[in-house]
Design a protein around this nucleic acid. Structure first.
Lengths: 127, 127
DNA sequence: TATTGACTTGGAGTGCACTCTAAGTTGTAC
DNA sequence: GTACAACTTAGAGTGCACTCCAAGTCAATA
């Protein structure tokens, strides 16, 4: 393990994933097998970090694991997988735009209700 | 069952929830018991529909069932629950604003990668 | 009168994404 | 040298939100 390598604990701290989840993601092929230090411990590199951060982004915006696995497989195909990777990301982009719209609509509804409740509350005090 | 009442099937069609889910939501107290027609079938009214649509909105923007149950309980408290309802909705509003930011950030990342892939693909053709 | 189809119930089963357990190894601190 | 913390594995367990099943009721139609 060189100076720049990170332990699983450190990666967990940096990414917000649990140590369990990091091992789980590796086991299901969402990450390539992480290099090991002499004692068998995982030694994460900066390249690994970048991939993990992308995974976390995709997950937090609702991409299911099976789709991220497909994306990981396309990464392993190298150049041959590029147009498929683009297609997958474009699909996700479409979903995110719909999600953003739903979210904005809901914010409007919420703010409307909140304003109504607030008006009722101040009426309660003065009335 | 009067003319304006809806069957569970119709409500499913109108809300996007499954018949199973509608019964499930009623069972766990997310909805008040729905009135019954003479034959024992559920007869949904327009008031029910409005509540269901709110539920669907909250769910689709990530509110867990247990929190919607709390909100339903506050509805049953009537006026006494109003300020608590407002607090709950304001909390959700905060979460949605964070979600919206995460979403926008991810869209930037995705578009960046898509553009990169696209550039690579066109280079592939001409080179 | 018999079949069809939409509904009813309680309770069991499913799929996803973790999350934890048990048993074992390794490297450092006292 | 022994206690301790951090790591390793395979595999079991958990929590959420449905989703389905079996058995039964009821109204309408052939």
């Amino acid at each position: 393990m060189t100076d720049k390598d990170l332990t699983i604990q450190q990666v967990a701290g940096l990414t917000g994933l649990s140590v369990h989840t990091l091992r789980y993601y590796e086991k299901i092929g969402l990450m390539d097998p992480i290099r090991r230090a002499k004692n068998g411990h995982r030694a994460y590199h900066m390249d690994d970090m970048e991939w993990i951060r992308l995974i976390v982004r995709l997950r937090s915006t609702g991409m299911p694991i099976v789709e991220m696995q497909r994306f990981a497989d396309m990464m392993r195909m190298g150049d041959a997988g590029i147009s498929r990777r683009r297609a997958l990301l474009e699909e996700h982009e479409q979903k995110l735009m719909l999600q953003a719209k739903e979210l904005e609509d809901t914010l409007v509804v919420l703010r409307d209700k909140i304003a109504y409740y607030r008006a009722w509350e101040s009426g309660e005090h003065s009335g």
